[in-house]
C-alpha cells in the first residue's frame, strides 16, 4: 500500500491553476489579434507550453510524483525535439 505517497491537492490549488489557464488562453487570443508576424507563432507556442506545463504539473500530479516519472517525460519531449530539429535542418538547407 502506498496511500502515504498520495498527496491530495486542495481545491484552492486546482481552482488557481484553472484561472491561470483561462488567463493564458485570453492572453494567447489577444496576442494573436496584435498581428506580430513571424513572432506570433513563437508566442503562441510559448503560451501553449506554459499551459501544458500547468496541466502536467498540477492536474496530472507530476509535481507530487517521484523523480523517475519527471525525468521519463523528458524522453518523448527530447525525442520529438530531435526529430523536429533534424527535419527542419533538412527542410531549410536542402
Amino acid at each position: 500500500m502506498n496511500e502515504q505517497d498520495n498527496h491530495i491537492v486542495t481545491t484552492k490549488t486546482f481552482a488557481a491553476v484553472w484561472i491561470a489557464l483561462l488567463m493564458l488562453t485570453a492572453i494567447t487570443v489577444s496576442v494573436a489579434k496584435m498581428h506580430l508576424g513571424a513572432f506570433s507563432a513563437f508566442t503562441a507556442i510559448a503560451i501553449a507550453s506554459a499551459k501544458a506545463g500547468l496541466v502536467l504539473w498540477y492536474f496530472m500530479h507530476l509535481k507530487y510524483e517521484k523523480r523517475l516519472l519527471k525525468f521519463l517525460l523528458l524522453v518523448p519531449i527530447l525525442t520529438l525535439a530531435v526529430i523536429i530539429g533534424l527535419t527542419f535542418v533538412d527542410v531549410w538547407y536542402r
Binding site: T28, I45, A52
Partner: peptide, 15 residues
Amino acid sequence: DLIWIYLFPLFYLIT
C-alpha cells in the same frame, strides 16, 4: 486537454 492546448493556437490563431 494537453493536445488541444497546442491544436487551438496552431489552427485558430494564425496571424
